[in-house]
Design a protein around this nucleic acid. Sequence first.
DNA 1: GCCAACGTTGGC
DNA 2: GCCAACGTTGGC
Length: 143
Amino acid sequence: MSADRSYWLVKSEPDAFSWDEQVINDIEPWTGVRNHQAKKNLATMKQGDLAFFYHSNVGREIVGIVEIAREAYPDPTADNGAWVCVDMKAVAPMPRSVTLAEIKASPELSELALVRQSRLSVVPVSADHWEILCRMGGMDTKE
DNA sequence: GCCAACGTTGGC
DNA sequence: GCCAACGTTGGC
């Protein structure tokens, strides 16, 4: 893990946009965020940052890892240019998906923003938590 | 500026 | 389908 990289978690309802679609499209604009806190997180993302791809509602699990391919720019799906999106590139699927139930059962992940602010669709993940979650998913964090 | 009403998200 | 959390809206 490089020291100057930030980590995130983004949520998508698989009915709307799934990991499989992300893989097929390879690079996909992450649009439709209409929450100020989430927007702030999007705007903070740097090219090369990594994010967990989480399926909300259906599945409720981390299924893959994406990389920020393009930093924040005006969301074309917003009518007034007030919102931003980034481009996400598929990196790798999780060898084992990490479920919300597992995350909630882990005391060391109790501070995770995913747990604490369950309604926020774009949340930061600390480097420590990133490594724990990668390990839970059977992912080699050395890359 | 306060707060009730209402809408949305997302877990259960 | 229900409900908790939380954001937004609008009356006052």
